[in-house]
Design a protein around this nucleic acid. Sequence first.
DNA 1: TTACACAGAGCTGTATACAATTTCAAGCGA
DNA 2: TCGCTTGAAATTGTATACAGCTCTGTGTAA
Lengths: 221, 221
Amino acid sequence: MSSVDRVYSEVRAMAAAFEFKPDERINELRLAKFVGTSRTPLREALNRLVAEGFLTYRNGQGFFCRSLEPGGIMNLYEARIAVECEGIRLASERAEDVEITALRSYLHWIEPIYRGDAGPEKLVELDEEFHLKIIRLSANSELERMLVNLNARSRFVRRIDMEKRRAITPADHLAIVRALSIRDPAAATERMRQHITRRREEALAAVRNAFSRLYVSQGAM
Amino acid sequence: MSSVDRVYSEVRAMAAAFEFKPDERINELRLAKFVGTSRTPLREALNRLVAEGFLTYRNGQGFFCRSLEPGGIMNLYEARIAVECEGIRLASERAEDVEITALRSYLHWIEPIYRGDAGPEKLVELDEEFHLKIIRLSANSELERMLVNLNARSRFVRRIDMEKRRAITPADHLAIVRALSIRDPAAATERMRQHITRRREEALAAVRNAFSRLYVSQGAM
DNA sequence: TTACACAGAGCTGTATACAATTTCAAGCGA
DNA sequence: TCGCTTGAAATTGTATACAGCTCTGTGTAA
């Protein structure tokens, strides 16, 4: 694994968790030393992150953390609706029965963890994984790529949201899988839309609280 | 404008037009000289293009042109359906009446060009612009960003398709705007889906012919 | 003839150097 | 006090150097 890939993953995780404060300028030399490399591979990684929407770039001024506005979060959730609703529609046409059965098993498999003492990171991870499994059933790598990106960029907010809720409510997920298993694209799409919309409303409320913690916490940098 | 941005635009246009052959390895030194810069800013631009799906990267081997498979093209069109159907749904809720009127005017404005002797590039450009205008009415910059990316990556195929058809058939576009203007999200979404699906079928046929020309033509590199 | 080993050329991955630009703070004047 | 100027320090943008890896073609042996 090359330095660029390693640095990319590391900085991406930092950006996803807003360890850079919104709109904060990124000092290349400092960050390069922090991740243990030189500016050249770091800048290559930063350029990827610009293309993926994690950072912004202004000529002559360098790289900046993306800003965190409620409107921007809304946009991410709406984009998720676009991707996931079409994804589940395709999945309901293309998935093998055995794959849907496996999905249902996964839900039952992780249910004890819901009720256990898993931390918010773990809960978000399980939730993302469920949605990813559905997208994969659409057999469309573009939709999957888009969802991976949207997940990473909204993870911070979802984590905050999960902290408040303390649990995943599995009812939505079960209803989605049920619609999928009876091959009802319209119902599956509608369930998915409602599900994500609900989460969006929660997240929107959560993000307002998020501001405070962002500007207080002193990250590793 | 920095060298990275300039190089990025230049190489992006080359990649979009498949001036690199599918799966072809990109020689950094040669390309750097060709675009008049050194390897450092070139590689930064190439990394952005990897993140956007124009190129691939294998460690120790460098950058490669994306491959051109019918399945990959299908995926792009399906992703367009996801983005544009949700986009027009939001647009039908959010657009001002005056904006929809402007959209209709645009269609009438470009109609003479359809019938004129515009080249295929021009026709594709006008078609892309129409779809972009709709997405912008959704007021969601994420959806817009996604569409811009998908457009660029499928432009090559659409150009080939347009060459065969020699014209845009404005009926689809008119029907879409009509559904939008009466604020009927379901109808607008369905029109859009049908429209893109039709284009997808044509493109799929066109892409098979495209292979030959790709491997015959000697690009600038 | 085919498979493998090897050497050389060529290319990529990373670090570093340096020029150009921006930032920031101190100084100055209104 | 506020705004502007100015200059040094810091930071970014680009080129280049070089180490290490990959690829290719030749030679050799089975």
